[in-house]
Computed example of a mutant assay.
Amino acid sequence: MVRHGRRSPGDIVLDLDILTAAGTDLRIVTCTAGADSADARKLDTLRACAAPQRC
């Protein structure tokens, strides 16, 4: 459970992908929520609250 201040978005189901660059140790990890889903809206709320002075 992630909490930011007094607000909590609740559980968020995310898809995780790991992208690799051939010939390097570089890895990019992406976490996404399904488009137009309740989880996407919760992630948007959490993102907005993470910005200074927004929540």
Rank of each mutant, 00 (worst) to 15 (best):
G5N: 08
A48L: 13
H4L: 14
S37M: 05
P9D: 01
L43C: 06
V29C: 01
Q53I: 01
R3D: 04
T20I: 07
A22W: 01
D17I: 01
R41K: 14
D15G: 02
T32E: 12
L14C: 07
G34W: 00
P52I: 05
C55M: 08
S8W: 01
S8D: 15
A51N: 10
D36V: 01
P52W: 06
C31V: 02
H4V: 11
S8T: 15
I18K: 09
G5A: 04
P52M: 04
R41W: 02
C31W: 05
M1Q: 08
A40V: 02
R27Y: 03
A33G: 06
D44H: 12
M1N: 09
G23E: 01
H4D: 09
T45L: 13
P52K: 13
Q53F: 13
G5I: 04
D25Q: 12
I18G: 00
T24D: 04
T32M: 04
D17M: 07
V29A: 10
R54G: 00
R41Y: 03
I28H: 09
R3E: 10
V2A: 09
A22N: 08
D44E: 15
C49S: 09
L26R: 13
L19D: 14
G23F: 01
G10A: 06
V29Y: 11
C55F: 06
A35T: 07
V2F: 11
C31A: 14
P52C: 06
T45K: 11
S37G: 06
A51D: 12
A50E: 08
R27P: 00
V2P: 02
T32H: 01
G34S: 09
D44L: 12
G23H: 01
I18H: 02
R6Y: 06
I18Q: 11
A50C: 11
R41P: 00
L14D: 03
D36K: 07
L14T: 08
R54V: 13
A33Q: 03
G5H: 05
L26D: 12
L16Q: 13
M1W: 02
T45D: 14
T30I: 10
M1V: 08
I18E: 13
D25I: 00
A35V: 09
D17L: 07
R7V: 13
Q53D: 15
R3H: 07
V2Y: 10
A48W: 10
A22C: 00
K42L: 08
R41E: 15
D25Y: 03
R3K: 14
I12A: 05
I18Y: 02
R6T: 13
K42Y: 06
A21W: 06
T20L: 04
M1A: 11
A21T: 14
G34H: 04
S37F: 03
D15V: 01
